[in-house]
Design a protein around this nucleic acid. Sequence first.
DNA 1: ACCGCTATCGTTAGCAC
DNA 2: TGTGCTAACGATAGCGG
Lengths: 147, 147
Amino acid sequence: MPRRRKGRKRVDIVKMENESNLQVTFSKRRAGLFKKASELCTLCGAEIAIVVFSPGKANKVYSFGHPSVELLVDRFLGRDLPPPNNESRHNHLLMNHQNAVLRELNKEVMNMEEILQMEKACGESILEVRRRANGGWWEAPINALNL
Amino acid sequence: MPRRRKGRKRVDIVKMENESNLQVTFSKRRAGLFKKASELCTLCGAEIAIVVFSPGKANKVYSFGHPSVELLVDRFLGRDLPPPNNESRHNHLLMNHQNAVLRELNKEVMNMEEILQMEKACGESILEVRRRANGGWWEAPINALNL
DNA sequence: ACCGCTATCGTTAGCAC
DNA sequence: TGTGCTAACGATAGCGG
């Protein structure tokens, strides 16, 4: 074995040319991005929606959303429909509680996703889960979105 | 003063209580998130849209989009957005939407739990082997699964 | 191709100004 | 409240299996 030659090297932020390295980097950094977003949601109570289209012909779409991509995007495009000051305080508290629950569930789903990846060694049934996936955040092939 | 540089400490990913620290962290991490997104765009040629709503009453909106938030979101939704609503109606729809998201996430969690049971019944798994000494990983709190 | 490892790089919490 | 610094922490490029 060659002597230890490990560890990352600095990488310029320019388009990667090697296709397979690009795919690996895309997967790793996409996961990192979603994790950062999740942490920002939890730490600061921010609401975040992310949509990512993969490069190349695959052109798959991945998304992260708390509370949901659709809800936040509607608000973004509508430009002035924040939740506050209407209906009753009861509703508002209810919403806060639901948001907390959502964050917990999102974290739980993320944990389970990680566990499931480890479980892959056991079988292929995970694919079934992915096929049915939808909700607050998830990944899906683009063609599955145009139902 | 004895130059005892303390540096950062580890921080739990839970809601920050100190309001001013929260604001600083929100700004820093939001900038970091957008930078990560930018790098992912450049390195891999991905297309990314991000919408962030700040916490608290300010509730300002920040966005990142390459090529643009609107374009990517339209492609993601694959549909026209609903017309503007009056506020109470909007709140009501909002609640309904959140309930829907909650149900989806709950279904997803249950789905994964079911899959995990099947995986477990199917045979050995990496995680199971690793955790066997502790009496079985599936009985442990999710947070105990330090990956 | 995928997964784990780990040295190394990049991000950021806590301070000082 | 914002800017800059630095050490510690966390993300990840490159590699081996």
